[in-house]
């Protein structure tokens, strides 16, 4: 039941996004009544998404025939943003795909084009000037926090690598890897020699 509750909440979010971006509905028009089922292997759950022309419907525990059925782990699904990896993932059996691939691609395209005009939406409550100021403030907070996290990251790296010497430098790691590879090759050569000697 908890899963169903979470899926209901996700459906509500999707439908809110649909109201907030009018172009979202236009981009979904050709997908009306097409069902995309996604089986997440890590959770052994199948979710189905369909757009009815008015709203989204999202279901869990879906056992029906879908227009496009994708089965993969969460890690694989995140790789799917790049369409060129599709064939490789199918060959590696990391991804199972049945039905019409265009349905999955069209849904993915529509979601990536989702662009909610937040100042416009917020202006109803705060007025134009208020909404614009709030958005500018949010953007500056976002860029400042990104910069801060970059600085923190580099400081932490320096501290751990150079000052405290808790972790090794990437160059040291690369050198270690090269040494290991060489050792592996030598061991293989030695193994071959021993085999040859034994074979005599």
């Amino acid at each position: 039941m908890l899963n169903t509750l979470l899926v209901a909440a996700a459906e509500r979010l999707l439908n809110t996004a649909l109201e907030l971006d009018p172009s979202f509905a236009t981009s979904l028009e050709k997908l009306q009544h097409q069902v995309l089922a996604v089986e997440i292997r890590d959770w052994q759950q199948t979710f189905a998404l369909t757009y009815t022309g008015k709203s989204f419907m999202l279901f869990n525990n879906y056992q029906e025939q879908a227009d496009c059925h994708i089965s993969a782990s969460i890690a694989t699904l995140s790789e799917l943003k790049d369409p060129s990896v599709l064939t490789r993932l199918i060959r590696q059996e990391a991804l199972d795909l049945h039905g019409n691939l265009n349905v999955a691609q069209a849904y993915s395209q529509s979601f990536s084009n989702l662009d909610i005009d937040w100042p416009e939406q917020l202006s109803r409550y705060l007025g134009d000037a208020g909404a614009q100021q709030l958005m500018q403030h949010c953007q500056s907070v976002k860029s400042r926090s990104q910069q801060l996290s970059k600085v923190l990251k580099s400081t932490a790296t320096e501290l751990l690598q150079d000052e405290l010497k808790v972790t090794i430098h990437p160059l040291e790691m690369a050198q270690f890897k090269a040494h290991t590879r060489e050792l592996k090759q030598r061991t293989a050569q030695l193994e071959q020699r021993i085999n040859q000697l034994l074979a005599r």
Binding site: M1, T4, F59, Q63, Q65
Partner: peptide, 18 residues
């Protein structure tokens, strides 16, 4: 409000299509 979740499950199992 749980009746809404029970009904959602019924719709998911109904296989109703266009």
């Amino acid at each position: 409000g749980i009746h809404r979740l029970w009904k959602r499950q019924a719709i998911a199992c109904s296989g109703v299509r266009k």
